[in-house]
Design a protein around this nucleic acid. Sequence first.
DNA 1: TAATTTTTTAATGTATACGTAATTTCGTGA
DNA 2: TCACGAAATTACGTATACATTAAAAAATTA
Lengths: 234, 234
Amino acid sequence: MDETATETAGRKRPIRGKSNTQHAVEVLKNLILENRLASGSNHLESELAEMLGMSRTPIREATLILEAQGLVEVKPRHGVRVLALSSEDMAEIYDVLTELESLSAELAARKKHPSGEFHPAEQAIQKMDDALNAGDLEAWANADELFHSELVRLGGNRRIGNICRMYGDQVRRARKVTLHLRPKPTKSNDAHRDVLQAIRNGEAEQARKIHRDHRVQAKLMLVSLLEQYGFHTV
Amino acid sequence: MDETATETAGRKRPIRGKSNTQHAVEVLKNLILENRLASGSNHLESELAEMLGMSRTPIREATLILEAQGLVEVKPRHGVRVLALSSEDMAEIYDVLTELESLSAELAARKKHPSGEFHPAEQAIQKMDDALNAGDLEAWANADELFHSELVRLGGNRRIGNICRMYGDQVRRARKVTLHLRPKPTKSNDAHRDVLQAIRNGEAEQARKIHRDHRVQAKLMLVSLLEQYGFHTV
DNA sequence: TAATTTTTTAATGTATACGTAATTTCGTGA
DNA sequence: TCACGAAATTACGTATACATTAAAAAATTA
């Protein structure tokens, strides 16, 4: 009990440069993405506050932020509800990502890039190859994610960056379910390599088309997997 | 002084079913869109709190929401900064809207719609015609906005709806500046009519292309206007 | 005077108190 | 037993207090 009291007292000020609100956002987001706060479950502010060892104030602020990001819904007397992700939801999200990432590929191809600008994207592809050879799907997924965010960065539209980052969280959530059900993603690496080459060559329409086709394929596969396996786990 | 005290005390509970936080979001958003909180200006929480006659708590919550919507930036000791909208920002926003609305047109064309589903969109076009004949640009802009949101609704992707609604606010902000500088938008009405017809006919690619071209034109016109006139007013 | 340190100020982040209203529980009557 | 209404509970929205710390101001020194 003693140490608990001390801890609680000590936790008043944030550990290091990070407000309790920010901390709560991170922790709650992780809990949701890890599926440790189940979809559809309701949680009272006071419950979350106690769970994270802080008062309701930063919790409220955090839930507002998470609500704006579409991860939870705040229902006045019913607590914070973690939003479920149906296969329809994922289809919607994939459509948005497909569109905006393809546009990013096009935009990236139209721009002049300083040398070395493509290095992170190349590295991501390399990591994907390595991970695939090693049979490490988690590593592959991380590298894949990295490539997609690089693509968006190269496109240079920061708003697209924000949107894709936001929905990226949700895709990660679904990926937990699908990653080990899907066929080995050998074609992804090729597609990514091709997009990058098209961007380098300044072939805007081509870059867009390649990425778009790749994304459309990925969506079809993912959504059918989710429908097949019910997706009640997410 | 007396009445001030009474007012402050009375404002404790929200006027009508709407929390102070929600109220603050609305009021602040309007102030920003009306350009009565200038871009780049910083405002302390306490200042806004006093301005709206409530305590800092709901103001803080409101600013977090507005921050998530990209209207302001909360900088710890410098207050709430209203984000400026440069012509580059508008270009970014237009690119996103172009892409997502065009996709919506495509999606709408692929779907079966119950009869009467197109009624609101038709009405919006009619209003645009009327407004244009009457020379009422504000009315035209409102009807135009309505059509765009209808288009997105017909597409059926709720996430696109959220994104477009969000950026719609910012477009409205810029429109304040450009509406009376741009040439009369006679072609818009035709384009809208054509999209709607294509959707009706189930011509998905066609619908997408028409709307896309229209949007690209609009973007070029708008961005060049903004560059020309500096846009320092927004 | 300019630079640097100290002091002061004040805005924020957080906890907490409390009134309000929604929900639930309980009790009453049909 | 069920429906309905009253009382009790309690989660939330908001105000407020307060400690922390960044920024500004003042003072000291070179």
